[in-house]
Design a protein around this nucleic acid. Structure first.
Lengths: 188, 188
DNA sequence: TTGTTATGAATGAAAG
DNA sequence: CTTTCATTCATAACAA
C-alpha cells in the first residue's frame, strides 16, 4: 500500500498521516510544499464562476481571481489556470452520456464516427443552465480593492467538504442474458 | 457534506476474495453501490490484459473490455479506465520505491519553477523511461473499426482571438441566473 | 468494535 | 484542447 512516498517534495517526515484534509476547510495555507489544495471557499468561488459561464479566463481574469482567492489561502495564478482547464475538460468528459448499447440484442450498424474520447456515464449535479458560455467575463472592477474591501469578502461560513461530484445512476440495469460463457482473453 | 453517493452499499458479499467464481449474482447485478467492486473474473481479465502489455487502453478498447466484462457483473467504462490508470500508477509507484539505490543517497531537489506560460512557464523537464510496453493492444478482432483521426491539428492560436472578442459588457447578475448561494462574487 | 490494507475514485499538474 | 501522470481522498474488505 503506502509504499515509498516517492514524490519530490522534501516532506522530511511522515506527512501523509496528517492529511485528513477532507471534511473541513483544509487550511492549505502553506501547509506542505506539494500541490495546491484548494479550500472550500476557493472551490466554491471557482465553481460559481464556472457556472456563470466562465470557461477560459484570460490572463487578466486569472490574475484577479487568484488575487481574490488568495485571501482564503495560498494560491497561485497557475492554480486557477489549471483549475479551469481541468474542470472544463472533465465536465465535458463526464457530459458524455453516450449510451453505448452493449446490451442491445440487435446488431446495430456502424456509427459514422464513434466518439473516441473518454467518456463515463457519470451524472452531473443538476445543472439547469442553458449552456451559455461566456468566455470573457468582466471580473473585478479595475478599481482595486483595498485590504478593507477584501476583508468584506471574508465573513462567510466554511462549507464542509469539498466538491465531490461523482455519482451516477447505474444505467445498466440488469445484466444481459449470458453471452458466450468463458470468454477470458480469447477476444484478445 | 453532500458528497454524492457514498456510504450505503449493500455489499452483496465477498466478491473480491473468492467465491463469485460462478456466474451468479455477485454484487453486481442488483446492487446499487456507490463504488464498483470488481469480481474475481473481472480482475483476472484485467490483470491478464495488463500483463499482456496493455497499459493505456484507448476509448475504444475500454469500451470493448467493459462490454466483455459486463457479463461478470456490473461495470462501466470508467471503471476500466480507472483500473488501468491505478494499476499502472501503482506499478510504477512500487517501482519507484525500489529505485532508491543506495548508490546515491543524494536527493535531488526539484527546482522551483517560477514562471510563466502566461504567468508561469511549464519547464520542459525530461521525457525518459523508454517504456517498453504495448500501448495499443489489438482487442476483439470482431470489429476493429479504427476511428479516423478527428481533429488533431486544430486549435492553436485561437486564444488571443477569443480574448479580444469577448469584451462585451456583460451586466453582472443580469445574464447570470442569480446564484442561490451566498456569493462574494459580487465583485464580478 | 477499531485499526490496517487494498484499491476505486477524484483531481492538481503537466505533457502532448 | 486532449491525454497522461502523480498524489491524494474515500471506503470496501479484512485482520485483530
Amino acid at each position: 500500500m503506502d509504499e515509498g512516498v516517492s514524490g519530490f517534495c522534501i516532506k522530511a517526515g511522515a506527512v501523509r498521516a496528517a492529511a485528513a484534509a477532507h471534511g473541513g476547510g483544509n487550511g492549505s495555507t502553506g501547509t506542505k510544499c506539494g500541490r495546491w489544495n484548494p479550500t472550500t471557499e476557493q472551490v466554491k468561488v471557482l465553481t460559481e464562476l464556472f457556472r456563470s459561464g466562465l470557461r477560459t479566463p484570460s490572463t487578466d481574469q486569472i490574475q484577479k481571481i487568484s488575487t481574490q482567492l488568495s485571501f482564503y489561502g495560498k494560491i497561485e495564478s497557475k492554480n486557477v489556470f489549471y483549475w479551469f482547464q481541468n474542470h472544463k475538460a472533465r465536465e465535458r468528459q463526464k457530459r458524455r452520456k453516450v449510451s453505448m448499447d452493449e446490451n442491445d440484442p440487435v446488431f446495430r450498424r456502424e456509427d459514422k464516427f464513434s466518439a473516441s474520447k473518454r467518456f463515463f456515464e457519470v451524472n452531473q449535479v443538476t445543472h439547469d443552465q442553458p449552456e451559455r458560455v461566456i468566455e470573457t467575463l468582466q471580473l473585478f472592477p479595475l478599481n482595486s480593492l483595498d485590504e478593507t474591501e477584501q476583508e468584506k469578502l471574508r465573513s462567510l461560513h466554511a462549507n464542509e467538504y469539498r466538491e465531490t461530484v461523482g455519482t451516477f445512476p447505474y444505467t445498466m440495469g440488469s445484466e444481459i442474458d449470458h453471452p458466450p460463457l468463458d470468454l477470458r482473453l480469447s477476444f484478445i
